[in-house]
Every structure is written in C-alpha cells, then in structure tokens.
Design a protein around this nucleic acid. Structure first.
Lengths: 117, 117
DNA sequence: GGCACAGGTTACAACATTGTTACAAAAGAA
DNA sequence: TTCTTTTGTAACAATGTTGTAACCTGTGCC
C-alpha cells in the first residue's frame, strides 16, 4: 500500500473516531440519557414542559439538550401556532433505534440503585 | 395509608431517584463509557497505561475515572510490588453485567458515526 | 390596558472539570 | 550516582457547564 493511501485511511479512521467521540460527548451531557429514555418510554410527541417536568431540570438545560438533539438529528421539533404556543418533540427513527440499549442500560441502573438502598 | 407511611415511601423514592441520578452522573462523566466499553471488550485485567492509551486521555482524568469506578464497586484495583509498579484493573461482576447494553449502545454509536462520514 | 400562559433566549455569576506541570516512590541498570 | 520505568497525586490556571433572573412573543380573557 502506498504511503498516500495509508495516510488517507488513517485520516479516515481519525475522522471516524472523532465522530464517535462527538457522539459519546453528546450522550454524556447532563440529562441527555434521561431525556432520550423518557421520550423513548412514551413514544408520542412530547411537549417541552412535559419533558422539563420529567427530567427535573432548568428550562435552560432542557432547551440546550433538545437543541443539541435536534442538531444531531435525534429529535424533530414541531411548533403549533396555538395560544399559548405548543411545541412538540419527537424522536427520530435513529433515536428510537437506540431504545433497546437505553432500556437495558436503565434497567441495570435501576437494579443497582435498588441494591444500594 | 397514614401520612407517616406515605412520607416514608416518598422519601424512599426520593432516595432511589437520587441513587439513579448519581449513577447516571457517574456514567455521564467524560470517558466513562469508553473506559467501561474498552475494559468489557477485553475482559482480562488491564493495566493503567493500557487503559490510558486506549481512551486517549490524560493520566489525571483516567486516574479520576478509575477511582470513581472503584469507589462505586465497578472495578477492582490490584497493585503488584514489581519494579516499576504494576497495577491491574478488573471489572466487577456488576460492571460486566452492563456489557450487553454497552455493546449495543456502542454499535449504535459506531453505526451512526459511519453514516455521518 | 394588564395579566396569564407556553416556550423559550440572554447575560452572568457560581461552580465543576480539564489538562499541564511538577513531583514522588522504589529499585535495577549504566 | 543518576537514569529509567509505572502509576499515580497535588496545585493551578483555563475552560466548560449550570442555574437564576430577567426578558420576549403572541393572543385570549377580564
């Protein structure tokens, strides 16, 4: 293999690794796993206030997380021109496909939390 | 149900919820999922330097993460009086039981990272 | 007009986390 | 004696993240 090819492949791997890292950083942000889990458990469009109530965090943080999820194509945001405003968030297919992992991870967490009581 | 009972149960739930939150905070710390995944994929005792190399982070952060994992009963640390010092880290049974979730989560991440190239 | 509501945004101060640098211990090799 | 190695720790400055408080929109209701 030429040095050029080798370098190109290496840089591809670098790029792939950085994408992986980006995703892990995204998933590791505070409340992110909770938001995904909550939305996955109740797979109907969910309103901002409902999500905020369930994850128990500030508007700022919830808005930030939802924005990041939207940017990364994991949720879609739909605003309705009602009064007062209604906004619904829905998980995309990609996010839904994460559900099995998320579910078993939360089962592990719940199980462990139980034991430590 | 008496008010006392109701309060007790409520406080138990509060306590359980806080344990869940603590675990999620732990798992959401930087490099934590990577460390658990790396160690789970190669389920033999792993040395500090090997972990550090594979997660590609500073000694400080790796040491902090491993310390937190040990505190939470997810890894055991064994030091050998060789020269220079040798220290091996092993996942506990509890951490190993997280492997299926972790594995499918990483598959999802890798899959998504691939697509975004 | 003034208030309420949902769903945010902005600015900012407080707090948390990170990597860097320097250091340490222990003993064998040069 | 000094160098090397592994596995860290301590201090600290830089950076990142959080919640709070204030504010905004648009409109129906009193």
């Amino acid at each position: 293999m030429s040095q050029v090819q080798s370098l190109r492949i290496e840089s591809m791997c670098e790029s792939a690794r950085s994408h992986v890292d980006d995703l892990l950083v995204l998933l590791s942000k505070s409340k992110m796993l909770s938001i995904l889990y909550i939305m996955n458990c109740d797979p109907t469009p969910m309103r901002f206030s409902e999500i905020k109530k369930r994850v128990d965090s500030s508007s700022t943080t919830v808005a930030r997380r939802l924005g990041e999820l939207e940017t990364n194509g994991l949720v879609t945001r739909t605003a309705y021109a009602t009064v007062p405003a209604t906004v619904e968030y829905t998980l995309t297919k990609d996010a839904i496909s994460l559900h099995p992992s998320l579910k078993s991870m939360f089962e592990w967490v719940l199980n462990r939390a139980d034991k430590s009581l």
